[in-house]
Amino acid sequence: MKDLPDPDLLARAARGDRAAFDELMRRHEDRVFAICLRIVRDREVALDTVQDTFLTVFRKAGQFRGESQFSTWLYRVAVNTCYDHLRRRKRRPTEPLPEGFEPPDRHVDSALSSVELRPDLTTALASLSEEFRTTLVLADVEGFPIGEVARILDVAEGTVKSRLHRARKELARILGNREAWG
């Protein structure tokens, strides 16, 4: 089972082979979870999105035609599931930043840019818009190539590049890189 490629496992899962789907989950669940947690920023919600993602994949396993890589399809389902959860949460107030954290003031003394005073990546990512955050998570955190990110998000590569460039600049500013943007 461990030697079978993803599409073969999915085909078996579509015929009701639970062991095949368990193996498929084992291969991808940590990465799906990491992506979802970065996007939705709440562990419990991320767990729900991972569950919903794999449920969707299981239910649609018979519809997968292999026109894209299985992983592309899986992560597209995951991202869309995360967006659905975020939309449902929209009415709730935004999570507050950690106590004591303030966005960097580009005019403050450069000593404040020390690593110790920088917010961690998770906090900084939370300040980005959904689109920027998701693009940056897929490209820079998960290391997907631009073309793969474009296929996952179902947008043009140029759109990915544009979002990524702006997301990096914004994230760097939040992380305290006043030397670059001050």
Binding site: D30, F33, L37, D120, L121, D140, V141, A172
Partner: peptide, 14 residues
């Protein structure tokens, strides 16, 4: 700076 922050941030796992 972004890549360094990513590199030093542990990947979340189940």
């Amino acid at each position: 700076l972004v890549l360094e922050a990513v590199r030093t941030d542990p990947a979340p796992r189940l």
